[in-house]
């Protein structure tokens, strides 16, 4: 007989015990690792953090969801635990606030639903009140405010614009209406000015005649003077008309001025609002959008590099639009040497 000697029963039993021991050790390590991972996850989820419950009531649950962050001056201090509805159709919201932040939040604090950025996620923001009533405690009920959404801002802006446009239209219609006091007064003013000009020319002519012919007799002079008198009367009546026209203009002007003032004020308010949007909000939107695109690009690049995606994609390579005497554009992988 050649080869290994047959193992005895006791040896085999010992070997089996060793294998059993090794598997138990391996399983114990695996279980401990799993427990540690679960515990770590739970720790990160805040299971071991001491919290208190506070509430607020809202008119609608729109924009709120379970787990959303509760922030105080930009720091996450808790999360939304539960949303329920009561019999009066009020939305009752339960928040979990980290106990270590309790001294920083007073019982008169206001909860505000806002966005982290103009196009970012919704968050609940705590804003402290006067601080007279001390810090929050378990089951404190807080006040709630809702920040106007972008659509509401735009709607408010449109509402602001509407009366302004109406007023401008009204003022324009007033100025362009041929029957309005203003247009009539201007027409009369034009007529009077024309009459005055005519009278002035006539008077000049008569004065020249009077000067030249003063020596031609009293009769002629009187006639001339009579004519002059008539013309002066005419001028006086014209002046009366002018006076009445000016009175009308004077009466109409305060109304017009008030309307113009109101229109200009509306324009000023609207332009202020528009400037606010353009200088404060738009650049931040553009900046955020740029950052978002850049982040997305980085994420896609990261995903492309990770296993198993990297094995599914063709390897990156430099491509060249080789010289084509017919003007074609065909890409070829770049060779190390062209000859």
């Amino acid at each position: 007989m050649t080869g290994e000697p047959l193992k005895t029963g006791s040896e085999m039993r010992r070997n089996l015990r060793n294998v059993e021991f090794a598997s138990r050790v391996f399983l114990a390590i695996a279980v401990v690792s799993l427990c540690a991972a679960v515990a770590l996850l739970a720790y990160h989820q805040g299971v071991f953090t001491r919290t208190i419950r506070v509430y607020f009531y809202a008119g609608t649950a729109d924009g709120m969801n379970k787990g959303m962050a509760v922030k105080l001056v930009g720091f996450k201090v808790g999360s939304l635990e539960q949303i329920s509805i009561d019999r009066d159709l009020r939305v009752k919201v339960e928040l979990r606030v980290d106990a270590k932040y309790i001294p920083m939040i007073d019982s008169e604090a206001t909860v505000r639903l806002t966005k982290e950025t103009l196009i970012g996620a919704n968050v609940l923001e705590l804003r402290n009140g006067s601080g007279d009533k001390g810090p929050i405690a378990e089951k404190t009920i807080l006040r709630y405010e809702r920040e106007p959404a972008l659509e509401e801002i735009v709607a408010a802006l449109a509402n602001q614009l509407q009366p302004m446009v109406g007023e401008v239209r009204q003022a324009t219609a007033y100025f362009s209406n041929p029957d309005s006091d203003f247009r009539q007064a201007v027409r009369q003013l034009n007529r009077t000015a024309a009459t005055l000009a005519e009278a002035g020319v006539e008077m000049k002519r008569l004065i020249v005649i009077a000067t030249d012919r003063v020596d031609k007799g009293e009769m002629r002079l009187r006639q001339v003077l009579d004519t002059t008198d008539g013309l002066l009367k005419e001028a006086s009546s014209s002046l009366a008309v002018l006076d009445s026209s000016l009175r009308k203009v004077d009466a109409a002007l305060p109304g017009i001025a008030t309307k113009l003032d109101a229109s200009l004020e509306s324009i000023r308010v609207t332009s202020e609002a528009m400037r606010g949007i353009l200088t404060d909000e738009l650049p931040s939107i553009v900046g955020e959008a740029g950052a978002l695109v850049s982040d997305t690009g980085e994420m896609v690049r990261g995903a492309k590099r990770s296993w198993p995606v990297r094995n599914l994609l063709p390897p990156s390579q430099e491509l060249q639009l080789r010289l084509d005497s017919g003007g074609g554009l065909t890409a070829h992988p770049v060779e190390n040497s062209g000859r």
Partner: peptide, 13 residues
């Protein structure tokens, strides 16, 4: 060289 990659294009030009 005859093996130059862009030689056919240059000949056509």
């Amino acid at each position: 060289a005859a093996a130059c990659r862009i030689r056919p294009a240059l000949l056509n030009l």
